[in-house]
């Protein structure tokens, strides 16, 4: 079993890293805060895999749940509506730890 960097239920902030090119963290969730709901395993890093690299070391992949009301100003749905998204561990930071958004 891999050692998990984040616990299920933990509040996390999705970092806004200046990574150009192919990455799997869409802009609309960067800088936002949510809750870890699941650990999906460890996968080769698409940011290097996409450019002929071997994607090593692998990165832990987590599902993060965000409240729609926190994502969009003037969200038109219900306050109970949520969004879940897969985020690699190097794009996540503990809330309140203030990790700098640098590579």
């Amino acid at each position: 079993m891999d050692r998990l960097r984040f616990a299920i239920g933990q509040r996390v902030r999705i970092r806004d890293l200046p990574v150009p090119g192919h990455m799997r963290t869409p802009r609309y969730v960067r800088g936002r805060t949510g809750e870890v709901t699941q650990y999906c395993g460890s996968f080769r890093n698409p940011e290097t895999l996409a450019y002929g690299g071997n994607g090593m070391p692998t990165r832990g992949l987590y599902r993060v749940r965000l409240r729609q009301g926190d994502l969009w100003s003037g969200y038109r749905g219900s306050g109970q509506d949520t969004l879940e998204i897969e985020i690699y561990e190097h794009w996540l930071a503990e809330v309140g730890k203030g990790a700098p958004d640098a590579p």
């Binding site: 799997r24 963290t25 395993g41 996968f43 969004l83 879940e84 998204i85 897969e86 985020i87």
Partner: peptide, 9 residues
């Protein structure tokens, strides 16, 4: 409503 954005693996 819960939206799942399949961004990765």
């Amino acid at each position: 409503i819960r939206v799942h954005d399949s961004t990765a693996d």
